[in-house]
């Protein structure tokens, strides 16, 4: 009999890439919650955080600065488009793409 629960088995076999994605999402999620005072349930990975108006100009530049410092990357002006920042999912993909080019 296998006493190892399936969900734990899945967790232990998760790839390092998937782990990276999870870690980045968690960090961005935590940052958004701490800095926008939004309700936790309203900030999902696919929530359109800019369309919903959680960030103004100051909030946006603070988010960019957080990403640059936390993930040791440099954003160029051409990176600052909605496709890269509209949600936690989009930001995560952007960070992974950016890191893979470093």
């Amino acid at each position: 009999m296998n006493y190892f629960p399936i969900y734990l088995h899945n967790l232990f076999t998760i790839s390092s890439m998937e782990q990276d994605v999870l870690t980045i999402k968690q960090k961005i999620n935590q940052y958004v919650l701490q800095n926008t005072f939004a309700e936790k349930l309203k900030i999902q990975d696919d929530s359109l955080i800019f369309k919903e108006g959680y960030f103004d100009s100051m909030g946006f530049i603070m988010l960019i600065t957080f990403i640059e410092e936390e993930f040791a990357l440099k954003t160029s002006d051409s990176d600052l488009i909605e496709e890269n920042f509209e949600s936690i999912n989009a930001i995560t993909s952007y960070i992974i793409r950016k890191k893979s080019k470093q």
Binding site: L48, F50, K51, F60, L80, E82, E86
Partner: peptide, 15 residues
């Protein structure tokens, strides 16, 4: 000053 690309996108302009 601010970027004037900001008005027709959901991203706020940056200074």
């Amino acid at each position: 000053g601010i970027s004037n690309s900001g008005l027709y996108t959901n991203l706020p302009p940056l200074f």
